[in-house]
């Protein structure tokens, strides 16, 4: 880890000011920043500690929706009764992420700034080529071990998977990222790699995430997060799905449905095609399974990760049928 200066921000304003220094990075939970600093990926000159800021850790749930302060801990949000009642997928995505200790450290805002687990990205000493780390240097992952790499949203410059769980649930339910007064829909907050994989989030230097809000919806209330992985716990997703469902009074016809995918794409992936195919349809296994396949339109396998193309639709289908009471 390189040497850096340490400063505690006294206020959000102070944090913004300090964050504008060249080479400054914010320390919220530290679980990404210190990890990547030890790998030599993050090389901050100045660390701005925002963990002591007051008033940014609120968890409020009203009829309009949830308002999560950026410094609310993942564990606290996961265990919040109102979140569990109104946004079960959010709670489930949170408690299935990382470990209990990491969830006590990591914050809602910081979690959105999580970086990929691509082994080539994380090892600059061994692999010089990484467009995400060093624009224009190439992509060492291509032609390497790609079991955990993305099949959706990839570009010629990057195939790294977004590792988030929470973000998948947020994308499904149209959450808003608050950067002070500037508000960005979460789906726009995460950027496709394209030719600039170094830029993962639509956040400018000096901006600070202050909150995340999630509008209330019937689909969010009836939702789940299903995470499939090799290990039962403490692992990133091989494929995951956040799904919300709202049925008509007949209990069979789909009025509203939300589907987002994790573990398979370069950003938290909203599966609009699946939603469109199912809206207005009758909830039954055959229909759901057929519609779930649409999530993989445009998917490109890299070799070792072909299984994700088979797996992800099954995860979606199971999640839909589960919230629908059919699995």
């Amino acid at each position: 880890m390189r040497d850096f200066t340490y400063a505690r921000a006294a206020s959000v304003e102070d944090a913004r000011r300090l964050a504008q220094q060249s080479g400054a990075m914010l320390l919220a939970g530290g679980t990404t920043l210190l990890d990547l600093a030890k790998c030599g990926v993050a090389r901050p000159d100045h660390v701005v500690d925002i963990t002591h800021l007051k008033g940014l850790d609120a968890i409020e749930v009203t009829r309009e929706g949830a308002h999560l302060g950026a410094l609310a801990k993942m564990s606290h949000v996961a265990d919040d009764k109102a979140i569990r009642a109104e946004f079960p997928a959010v709670s489930e995505a949170l408690w299935q992420a990382a470990s209990a200790q990491l969830r006590n450290m990591a914050t809602i805002g910081g979690n959105l700034m999580q970086r990929t687990r691509c082994a080539y990205f994380r090892d600059p000493n061994s692999f010089a080529a990484c467009n995400k780390r060093q624009p224009g240097s190439g992509c060492a992952a291509r032609g390497g071990i790609t079991r955990n790499h993305a099949v959706l949203g990839t570009s010629s410059s990057c195939i790294a998977t977004n590792p988030g769980d929470l973000a998948v649930a947020l994308v499904a339910f149209d959450a808003i990222v608050h950067l002070g007064d500037r508000k960005v829909p979460v789906d726009d907050f995460f950027l496709l790699p394209g030719a600039t994989p170094d830029r993962e989030q639509a956040i400018e230097p000096g901006e600070v995430i202050t909150a995340v809000s999630i509008p209330a919806s019937a689909a969010a209330r009836r939702s789940t997060y299903l995470k499939v992985r090799d290990r039962q716990s403490y692992e990133f997703a091989a494929a995951s799905a956040a799904v919300g469902l709202d049925l008509e009074a007949d209990g069979r016809t789909i009025r509203d449905i939300r589907v987002a995918l994790g573990g398979v794409a370069t950003k938290p992936w909203r599966a609009h095609a699946v939603e469109k195919a199912l809206k207005g349809k009758t909830l039954e296994p055959e229909t759901v399974m057929r519609a779930s396949l649409l999530a993989m339109e445009g998917a490109i396998a890299q070799g070792d990760n072909h299984y994700k193309i088979d797996l992800a639709p099954r995860v979606i289908a199971r999640a839909i049928l589960k919230v629908g009471g059919l699995a």
Partner: peptide, 16 residues
């Protein structure tokens, strides 16, 4: 060995 750490070289957890 690109999974040269305990997050990627998976050993069983308690839940397994």
């Amino acid at each position: 060995v690109i999974n040269n750490n305990l997050g990627d070289y998976l050993i069983a957890t308690n839940a397994d």
